[in-house]
C-alpha cells in the first residue's frame, strides 16, 4: 500500500492519483514520487525519509488512514490521544471515539504527543493494546521521537503524522 502524502488515504502500490484528494502519487520523473510508509499489516520498516517535509512546519495533523480524514493538532502543548468515555468526566485532548476508537482498541488515555525543541515525541500512557510507531511497539512512558510521515498506531487504529 502507499499512502497519499496530502490526505493520508491508502492506495494499492503504483496507484497514479489519489481518488480522495486528487494528488499525484506515482508518476514520471518530473514529479516527486511518494515515499512508502509501512502499513499496519507489514513488518516494521525503517521509515523512508519523506521528501515533502516542509522547511518550517506551521501545522501538525494526524491523518486517519482508514477514513481519509485529518485531525489538526496544536503545536504548542502536549496533547493526549484517546477516546472519550461518557461515564467519565474528563476526556482526552483528541477524542477518537468517532473514528472506531473503541472497536480498534484505543484506551481512554492512550498516548501523548508533544514537541520538544525541534523534535516531536510520542509516549504510550500504558494503554491496554499498545502504541506502535512504524510497527514497533513502544514501552509505556518512554518518549519516542516521531517525524513527518511516521505511522502512529493506537491499538489497531492507524494514524499518520504529517507536518504542513
Amino acid at each position: 500500500m502507499i499512502r497519499c502524502p496530502s490526505c493520508g488515504a491508502s492506495h494499492p502500490y503504483n496507484t497514479l492519483f489519489c481518488d480522495q484528494c486528487g494528488a499525484r502519487l506515482v508518476g514520471s520523473g518530473s514529479l516527486a514520487s511518494t515515499e512508502e510508509i509501512g502499513s499496519t499489516h507489514t513488518k516494521p520498516q525503517t521509515p523512508v525519509s519523506p521528501t515533502e517535509r516542509p522547511e518550517t512546519p506551521t501545522r501538525l495533523v494526524l491523518a486517519l488512514a482508514h477514513e481519509e480524514m485529518e485531525i489538526p493538532l496544536p503545536l504548542t502543548r502536549k496533547v493526549v490521544l484517546g477516546r472519550f468515555d461518557p461515564g467519565r468526566k474528563k476526556g482526552p485532548d483528541i477524542d477518537l471515539a468517532a473514528h472506531q476508537a473503541y472497536e480498534r482498541g484505543v484506551s481512554r488515555q492512550h498516548a501523548v504527543l508533544y514537541q520538544s525543541g525541534n523534535q516531536f515525541y510520542v509516549e504510550d500512557l500504558s494503554s491496554r493494546n499498545g502504541t506502535f510507531v512504524n510497527g514497533q511497539r513502544l514501552e509505556p512512558f518512554q518518549a519516542h521521537p516521531v517525524d513527518h510521515g511516521d505511522e502512529i498506531r493506537l491499538g489497531t487504529l492507524p494514524l499518520v503524522l504529517l507536518l504542513r
Partner: peptide, 19 residues
C-alpha cells in the same frame, strides 16, 4: 520506466471524475 504522459493524463481525468 516513466509512465507515458498520455496515461497520466487519462488517469487524471478519471480521478477528476471520481472526485
Amino acid at each position: 520506466p516513466p509512465v507515458p504522459p498520455k496515461v497520466i493524463w487519462a488517469a487524471r481525468k478519471a480521478t477528476l471524475l471520481k472526485l
